[in-house]
Amino acid sequence: MSARRASIAAAAAALVLGGCAGAPGPRGYLSTAPEVVHTARGGWVKVVRSSADATFGSQLVVEGELLAAGADTLHVLTGTGPLTVVRAPRDRVTLVGLHNRAGERALASLGLSILSLSNGWYSVITMPLNWLVGIVESHTQSRVGVLEIRDGPWDACRTHARFPQGMPPGLDPQRLTLHWYWPSAPRGFSTPR
């Protein structure tokens, strides 16, 4: 394999692996497992609603920190304030409880791809094999800490809610704020406190 082809292949692998390894949820918000044990914030939740009319397809209803969850309701703290979402048929919920660091698997696989150039002709075998393994490992890791619910009750989301006991009575949700690790929030969200 020529150096040029190998570099193109490695770049392609990076794109594929990066795409596969992309864990849902904004990186500036999610905490890794060792950080999560010291905090008590909710996971990042997305609700996508499918229209009965196929013309309209699926639309994002809400995205933000999960405050509390019931079988048919989610309380979500978005960048513009709190919202309560009531379950509708065919709703799809994705809840990310922690930053699963799947990108590190992809990076490791990319590094191995470069290392496989030392295999000479055998990189024709070891490089694509490594991509395959890297894609599988990255994808597997990207599902760690992720809960997906399609068209079913939402109680299971409680585990990663800020208030797993339910919304505290008398609490004014308007006083709650999103916390970000990174200095800038994603577009459309308010500046962190």
Partner: peptide, 28 residues
């Protein structure tokens, strides 16, 4: 709630590929 840190997955596939690529590289 109790949160317990677990060792997590070790990505054995990538580890095997590291060994394979390393051995082939060494032989090369």
């Amino acid at each position: 709630e109790t949160d317990r840190l677990t060792p997590g997955r070790s990505a054995p596939g990538l580890a095997v590929m590291t060994v394979v690529i390393g051995v082939v590289g060494f032989l090369c």
